[in-house]
Nucleic acid binder design. Structure first.
Length: 223
DNA sequence: GCGACAG
DNA sequence: ATCTTGTCGC
């Protein structure tokens, strides 16, 4: 069985047509989620973590990790086909569904406007925001290394996201709307989830849980 | 043709 | 993403 990228591109274009970039979620956020995906056994196992935090105090309410056999290779521009199955498995276990979900990776800042945040948002019919550590496409002006600076991420003349200096002297974050969230709100909510670290709290916790980092170990000791 | 390329 | 210790800078 081989992968037909031309076919998948058509699928992405069709799905991208269904993405909505107007705010369609309750402005009163009580729970906010974060996702992260990692791999084990040389990539044979995909590990997805989803965490739900209370807002605005950011305490961990619930989290789940799902491990599935990896069925798709990593191909730039087709990341979601590799990662969404495990994310869906983790999502099914979440009881307290969040009001908003921050996804690791791009939203519409994608060649065909369907990064994993947008794709997952459609599959879950959830408001999502893409939070990526690297750029996939688009161009932007160099910005000062001081936290708080922002510049548009552009593809030709179209704004596909934002480049945000989330912390001093760190590499910037690439923020873009996923689904049911406007570009303006995407940036706004990521900023509201920043607590002195490069990554917004939901993403930071999902990353810690997925990789069993010290932040997560401390949480386990408290229980 | 050449380089870029989320996780 | 992942393999991995110390180390430079804020």
């Amino acid at each position: 069985m081989s992968i037909n990228l031309q076919q998948l591109k058509q699928t992405q274009l069709s799905l991208a047509n269904q993405v909505r970039l107007s705010d369609d979620f309750n402005e009163l956020i009580n729970f906010i989620g974060g996702t992260d995906v990692g791999f084990e056994d040389g990539g044979n196992i995909t590990r997805a973590a989803i965490v739900v935090l209370s807002y605005p105090n950011f305490s961990v309410v619930e989290y789940h990790v799902a491990r599935l056999k990896t069925e798709f290779p990593y191909i730039p521009g087709f990341l979601s086909f590799r990662e969404y199955p495990a994310l869906l498995a983790a999502w099914q276990q979440i009881k307290q569904k969040p009001d908003l979900l921050l996804v690791d990776g791009q939203g519409i800042a994608h060649p065909r406007r369907l990064g994993i945040a947008s794709h997952l948002g459609l599959l879950l019919d959830m408001p999502t925001i893409g939070v990526a550590k690297k750029r996939l496409c688009g161009q932007y002006e160099t910005l000062p290394k001081q936290a708080g600076n922002v510049t548009p991420l552009l593809d030709k003349k179209e704004q596909i996201g934002w480049v945000l200096q989330s912390k001093n002297n760190c590499n910037p974050l690439f923020i873009s709307a996923g689904h049911r969230v406007s570009q303006t709100s995407a940036l706004k909510w990521v900023n509201l989830c920043l607590r002195g670290y490069r990554l917004p709290e939901p993403t930071r916790w999902a990353d810690a849980i997925a990789s069993n980092k010290s932040l997560f170990k401390k949480l386990l000791n408290e229980k």
